[in-house]
Design a protein around this nucleic acid. Sequence first.
DNA 1: CCCGGCATCCAACGACAGTTGGATATCGGC
DNA 2: GCCGATATCCAACTGTCGTTGGATGCCGGG
Lengths: 209, 209
Amino acid sequence: MSEVRVLIVDDHPVVREGLRAVLSAETGIAVVGECGSGDVAVELAAQLRPDVVLMDLRLPGLDGVDATSRIVSAGTAAVLVLTMYDTDGDIIRAVAAGATGYLLKESSRQELAAAVRAAARGETVLAAPVAAKLVNRVRGGEPQLSRRELQVLQCIADGMSNPEIGRDLFISEATVKSHVMRIFEKLSVSDRTAAVTVALARGILRLPH
Amino acid sequence: MSEVRVLIVDDHPVVREGLRAVLSAETGIAVVGECGSGDVAVELAAQLRPDVVLMDLRLPGLDGVDATSRIVSAGTAAVLVLTMYDTDGDIIRAVAAGATGYLLKESSRQELAAAVRAAARGETVLAAPVAAKLVNRVRGGEPQLSRRELQVLQCIADGMSNPEIGRDLFISEATVKSHVMRIFEKLSVSDRTAAVTVALARGILRLPH
DNA sequence: CCCGGCATCCAACGACAGTTGGATATCGGC
DNA sequence: GCCGATATCCAACTGTCGTTGGATGCCGGG
């Protein structure tokens, strides 16, 4: 059997260098390319036809999740997400986008190499804390927010008042309050400020850069 | 002149590998050791006597800032902080602890090597965004919060109401509101939710784990 | 010394947030 | 079809938030 061809996508040169060093040392794995942005990653994946793309989620330009879904839907390669954060939002979005696995950067050289080989065989690989969060989610441990509720929550995080949110979404202030109420229930909080902090902590929302 | 001896401290194996690869490729720089925790870093610095310690701030066990101040006060080596975050809080604390420089992980290979050499000569090296923030701070571009205001802000982020905060700090609700008002002015916001998000974005507060 | 600047405290008013209790619509399963 | 579950919408009430306008004490420079 031939060796596994890997494309590295991460915006930190040092991390790229590290991944290259770790993987090149493994027999049966070859790093065929690397880049630091999502747009270039999609392009490179199409041209280099790697078996596995090692993808960071936080990227300049095109987001890691978007790049993942494009590469997966093009069917060119399996995408193995490798990121620092084990927040719910990122995990869900990455898996939904079609990622084959989700590793944390705390991973050891051995775990990393094993995960790349597994991904090349089409197997799903999840880091232990990641798997735990997914199970939690599936069992309904943390109810998910509806689309409308997410919009309202985003507005709240942006510091908008209920009347402002109502004008923005073309609904009455009373309706906004109703959504806010349900958001509180689902997040187990009792005011908007706490809602924002737990949403940030769970990765449901992202801080404005 | 002899070569620069470097100790790498970072809890991510992949990042350590990357730094080692980048620095080892440079002439005149030798990586003499690496570790993934603050306690071990202090010990290794004492035994290996490196010229420069490359230090991540987020470490398990002993914090990167604490490790920095110990190593600097022992006079064993210059400490070059290398981290992902350019938040005000971290920068200030690291510089106060005696760090010789502050680099971001977005740095290129060239910047990294240049910074290590400069640190070995005792020069101060700051990444551009970091320098900007420090200048900003010194010029008063971002007014800093008083002790009391920070306490109140922390309570707000924890989702407490003004009456609750008042009971907690043994002051009247009216006084709490007055502090909240000044926090809004200093952060250029007009409600508590926005205050929390910009405080988080600026690194004034940290998210509860 | 006195003064401006700042941190800390307080009270009363108007606007908004959070609560209660609904109405309507859609969707999947018995 | 009918039913429960869920998403979406709305109105009136109560308490809190944010605003205005002030009082006190501390510190460093003119």
